[in-house]
């Protein structure tokens, strides 16, 4: 997993609530056997017109969105299915962090395993950041994981929560399976006790 320390980027505003994983990547793209190459299918049904061309009205297709690494989206982002294809598609497009007032549990857990940082902020901070980004799409936001802070324009600064273990894994680029495997002895003794 790629390390995450500090990220400064312009952002893509998506002010919709309850963006579900079927919107992030529809089920018909889940027939793959690989994690890579899903960025082109991200938000597919919003992003492309019937003939397959870009929908000019969808924010991801705007020139100002290109190269952005931060997505700002409405509450309960990532609700629905457990598909890890959702963070794979977001990371595949180029996102490294998502700012919202809330994330669905499984989506959050999947994101943290793919170097995609869920940044949970208060409704006020969300509103201020969303407005600033919508007003000026070149607005740059800084997300600093060591201090768990997000900084926008005009001195706007807020902190966000993250559990100590996930933070440690992201900072070091550690993959959690390695950590789990280190408990082999304890797992074996647990299995022996129970049988």
């Amino acid at each position: 997993m790629a390390k995450f320390t500090t990220l400064t980027s312009h952002a893509v505003p998506l002010p919709a609530e309850n963006v579900d994983t079927d919107q992030i990547i529809p089920a018909r793209f889940l027939k793959v056997t690989d994690k890579h190459g899903l960025g082109d299918s991200l938000f597919c049904d919003w992003r492309y017109l019937k003939d397959g061309s870009d929908n000019p009205d969808f924010v991801l297709n705007e020139a100002a969105s290109q190269g952005a690494q931060i997505l700002i989206a409405g509450n309960n982002f990532g609700s629905g299915s457990s598909r890890e294809h959702a963070p794979w598609a977001l990371v595949g497009w180029g996102f490294r962090a998502i700012i919202s007032t809330g994330f669905a549990d499984i989506f959050k857990s999947n994101s943290l395993k793919n170097g995609l940082l869920p940044v949970e902020v208060s409704a006020d901070v969300y509103k201020a950041l969303m407005e600033a980004v919508q007003l000026d799409r070149s607005t740059r936001i800084t997300i600093d994981l060591p201090t768990q802070s997000v900084t926008g324009l005009d001195g706007l600064e807020a902190t966000f929560p993250i559990d100590a273990f996930s933070k440690h894994c992201l900072l070091e680029g550690i993959d959690q399976l390695g950590y789990l495997l280190s408990f082999d002895e304890q797992i074996t003794s647990y299995e022996q006790q129970r049988t």
Binding site: S81, S109, N110, F165, Q176, L177, Y179, F183, I187, E191
Partner: peptide, 18 residues
């Protein structure tokens, strides 16, 4: 409960989850 594919791998390898 439902899990992502990374966690599917965790359980396959260790029969455990964090």
């Amino acid at each position: 409960f439902g899990i992502g594919t990374s966690e599917v791998e965790h359980v396959l390898a260790t029969q455990c989850l964090l």
